[in-house]
């Protein structure tokens, strides 16, 4: 009952997108999010939606996975859209009551808003389902390298990031085990009001914290005993290789941008 698939978890289908350089994917994802904020008419939104559908198709991951990424945020999206719908002004007024009004531009703006949310969530999901977390950390490290000249401890930040990402599944598994152990001791997590349910987390959170601190300490000892030096020069086992496909992807990204600007000016 506790083995739900975590949203956004890496799905190994070894598609074209999986094989791209994580740095490229990271930049492209970031760039796409910026483009989303430039889309302000029907055609630009359709264009970005088409690009997204193409990427989903190329990733060879089922649509269901992407939908399960949007679903938990559904309420946030709906509420934001409703606020946008009733509080914006301009255009033809259909209905008005005190400060609430339903206008043509409000309807259009809230549709764009929903699309914007959906696009941004989906593009980040594409990034995370096609890229193993450690590769993502490598990409971030690689992209942060210039910050070294500003004396930012890039190596340490990258190490912290990859350790954090590495232990998410471990901790998820541990939560399941501890919850099972407490359920075996007669705990029922699915009943009670909000206050009671919150209280029921105590027998889960305390053992979880205890073991997390213990593990952190053990990990630190294990790293030090193997000679880890935070300021040392690090080499990589998995090298990031920029291939021709990555360069072509950048070209494609530029084309997408050009078309978007053209559609915006139309």
């Amino acid at each position: 009952m506790n083995n739900k698939v975590i949203f956004g978890l890496y799905v190994p289908t070894n598609s074209f997108i999986h094989r791209l350089d994580p740095r490229m994917k990271f930049i492209a994802c970031f760039w796409y999010v910026i483009l989303v904020f430039f889309a302000n008419n029907v055609w630009t939104n359709i264009w970005l939606g088409l690009i997204l559908l193409l990427l989903i198709h190329l990733s060879r991951v089922s649509l269901k996975m992407y939908w399960s990424g949007i679903r938990p945020l559904m309420w946030v999206i709906i509420i934001t859209a409703l606020v946008q719908l009733f509080f914006s002004t301009g255009g033809h007024v259909y209905w008005q009551w005190h400060f609430l009004s339903l206008t043509s531009s409000g309807i259009i703006q809230s549709i764009y808003l929903v699309l914007r949310f959906a696009y941004i969530i989906t593009i980040s999901t594409i990034l995370t389902v096609t890229t193993p977390t450690l590769q993502l950390a490598d990409a971030v490290e690689s992209l942060m390298k210039p910050l070294k000249y500003l004396r930012v401890p890039v190596n340490q930040i990258a190490m912290m990031l990859s350790i954090a990402l590495r232990f998410i599944p471990t901790i998820m598994g541990e939560v399941t085990t501890i919850m099972n152990a407490q359920r075996a001791r007669g705990m029922d997590f699915s009943t009670g009001n909000l206050y009671q349910r919150t209280r029921k987390l105590v027998p889960v959170m305390i053992p979880l914290f205890v073991s997390s601190f213990k593990r952190a300490e053990e990990l630190a000892v294990a790293m030090e005993s193997r000679g880890y030096n935070p300021n040392g020069e690090r080499t990589k086992y998995r090298l990031l290789i920029w291939r021709r496909a990555d360069s072509w992807s950048i070209v494609a990204l530029v084309l997408v941008t050009v078309v978007l600007i053209a559609l915006k000016l139309l």
Binding site: T177, I178, A181, A184, R185, V202, P203, P207
Partner: peptide, 15 residues
């Protein structure tokens, strides 16, 4: 009916 002592059960202590 069933009591279950998990592996390394000491990791479930909390009180």
């Amino acid at each position: 009916h069933v009591g279950f002592v998990f592996q390394f059960p000491e990791s479930q202590l909390f009180a």
